[in-house]
């Protein structure tokens, strides 16, 4: 669950004294939107995004390639350097921070990617929303064939054990288990991803044990529905 296991390690970077058109070409070539700006000693000094570039490259030059453009723009005094336009108020993360740290930090700071730096401010990698999604898909277990059930349980000790016991007795493997809040504060919604096609018997068993199986159309993982 650490950033260094999920980050992209082969990072495309750019130097601070490069011109903005080269940065744009680099992003287009590699289909990326974030470029860490790194000094020769490997230290991170800034970040530049495709949005930053769009706001500094005049529209009439946007379709000309960097090479041709450098000439024209040098003549016109438009060849600005990365260090003039990059973001220097950096939101960074450490390789030993966790995926959860990265999720919360990205959500709070409203950025698409975080540079990963060590104690000496040397760039170690970059972690993007895409990297986090990959980690989350893995956590959910949905890369493997299975069936999701949503079980409503009383908010009291031992409920999850009963569910896991029932599933285990039936020889079913668990892909993942998520416990989410439910609008009724005395209850929790337990999402079990079961690695089986055969859910008929386990569903019946859970009902017999006194659990409510929530109608799939009433599942909410991201919000709390209003009670009727």
């Amino acid at each position: 669950m650490f950033v260094n296991r999920s980050m992209t390690k082969k990072v495309i970077t750019i130097g601070p004294d490069t011109d903005i058109f080269s940065a744009r070409d680099l992003m287009e070539k590699h289909h990326i939107r974030h470029l860490p700006v790194v000094r020769e000693d490997g230290c991170l000094v800034g970040m530049i995004t495709d949005r930053d570039l769009r706001s500094v490259i005049p529209y009439e030059f946007s379709s000309i390639s960097g090479k041709d453009h450098r000439k024209t723009s040098e003549q016109e005094g438009l060849a600005r350097k990365i260090e003039d336009v990059m973001t220097t108020h950096l939101i960074k993360i450490s390789p030993l921070d966790t995926i959860q740290d990265a999720l919360l930090l990205i959500q709070r700071s409203k950025v698409g990617a975080l540079p990963v730096v060590d104690d000496q401010n040397k760039l170690q990698g970059i972690i993007s929303v895409r990297d986090l999604l990959r980690a989350f898909i893995n956590v959910l277990g949905i890369g493997e064939p299975g069936t999701l059930l949503c079980i409503l349980v009383e908010e009291k000790v031992g409920q999850l054990k009963k569910i896991v016991d029932a599933v285990t007795e039936d020889g079913i493997s668990l892909g993942s288990v998520l416990v989410a809040r439910y609008w009724d504060e005395k209850k929790r919604a337990v999402f079990c991803y079961l690695l089986t096609l055969n859910v008929r018997d386990i569903k019946k068993k859970l009902v017999d044990l006194g659990f409510d199986l929530l109608d799939p159309m009433q599942w909410y993982m991201d919000q709390l529905p209003e009670p009727d």
């Binding site: 949905i142 493997e144 064939p145 299975g146 069936t147 999701l148 089986t196 096609l197 859910v199 799939p216």
Partner: peptide, 8 residues
């Protein structure tokens, strides 16, 4: 596939 096997 978010509700049923096999998830594809």
């Amino acid at each position: 596939p978010s509700f049923a096997y096999p998830g594809t």
